[in-house]
Simulated assay, not measured.
Amino acid sequence: MVLIGLAGGLLSGLFAIGGGIIMVPLLTAFAKLNQRAAAATSLAAIVPTSIVGSITYVIAGEVDLVAAGFVSIGAVAGALLGSRFLKRIPLTWLRWLFIIFILLVAARLFLVTPERGQEVALSVSIAAAYIVLGLLMGVLSALFGIGGGIIAVPALIGVFAIGDLVAKGTSLLVMIPTSIVGTASNWRAGTVNVRAGLVLGLSATVASIPGAWLALILPPRVSSVLFGCLLIAVAAQLTYKAVTTQRVARR
């Protein structure tokens, strides 16, 4: 459990993805938690991890507080909407579209090196776009159990032309309210494994600090390629889930 938390925390600090993308499959495989309990417990562990990780980025001056505020508004609303959609809509076609989207983003990361130190002038349209990004981030996170950073970081870099470090710091900051809201909902539903969540949260929090500092010292090109590789791994995991789900449905 400690090793799972360390791995998730390191990825959370390095890529601002929350860490659930690696913690959930490891919890189901090695900690013998079912999918629902693993996702809920991982989300609970992300609360302290995102707080400590974002503080590291704030100290380094790599967070856009205004963008984080607007994205958080949309993300919290999107998470609530996504939890409702989860019970009502077929996810098969949406999952495959999401996989294609992730692969396209990964391809862009391999081809384009993000620039650092850029600033985006705030306007009404930019603020509205931030909220829409948050909605998309929250809905897809709830539907697929994927950390919102998978969507937020590439979007902030590619669409809003924000530097990669600021995108990561901002994404981690947004995860604080969204993970708290999600964990509160899971707590009421009784799906959080409290003991596992404490162990995961403590170890992930410890690992998130060196992960964040590593992100700060990595060259933009190396960071971009590593994040692209991670997205390919995420797409592979989602593809496996999609194929497995379709096979089970046919039986």
Rank of each mutant, 00 (worst) to 15 (best):
L86N: 11
A127H: 02
M137E: 02
K87G: 02
V139L: 11
A75Q: 04
G148F: 06
G145I: 00
T92H: 08
G82Y: 09
A128L: 15
L86M: 10
G147E: 01
R116S: 12
G82S: 07
I89S: 00
L80W: 11
L135I: 13
S123R: 11
L97E: 01
V120T: 15
A129D: 09
Y130W: 14
I73H: 05
G78P: 10
P90Y: 02
V132H: 02
A128E: 08
Q118G: 06
I126A: 09
Q118I: 12
L143D: 05
A106K: 07
Q118S: 14
G148L: 10
S123T: 15
F144N: 04
F101I: 07
G82E: 05
V76Y: 02
S83C: 00
A106Y: 07
I73S: 06
L109V: 00
V139Y: 10
S141G: 15
L91G: 02
R95K: 15
L80R: 10
L81E: 04
V132Y: 03
V124G: 13
R84T: 10
G138D: 09
F101R: 01
T113C: 09
I126D: 03
T113K: 13
V124Q: 10
L103P: 06
A106W: 08
W96S: 11
S72C: 08
L133Y: 05
F144I: 01
A127M: 15
Q118V: 13
L111H: 07
G148N: 08
A107H: 09
W93I: 09
L103R: 06
G148P: 05
A107V: 03
A129R: 09
F85P: 00
R84Q: 12
A142Y: 12
A121C: 02
I89H: 01
S123V: 11
A107S: 14
F101N: 00
I150N: 03
A127F: 05
G74E: 07
F98L: 14
G134R: 08
I89D: 01
I146Q: 05
L109H: 12
G134C: 11
V132R: 01
L94N: 02
G82K: 06
S141H: 03
A77D: 05
A121G: 06
G138M: 12
S83E: 14
F85Y: 08
G82T: 08
F98K: 03
G138V: 08
W96E: 10
L91A: 07
G138A: 13
I146H: 05
W93M: 09
I89F: 08
I131G: 01
A121T: 14
W93K: 12
A128W: 09
L91K: 14
R108D: 12
A79V: 14
G138K: 07
V120Q: 15
L143S: 05
A75I: 06
A142F: 13
I89N: 01
A121M: 14
Y130H: 10
A106I: 02
I99K: 03
I150V: 15
G74W: 01
L122F: 14
L86P: 00
L109N: 12
A77K: 03
Y130L: 12
L136M: 14
W93A: 11
S125P: 04
I100V: 15
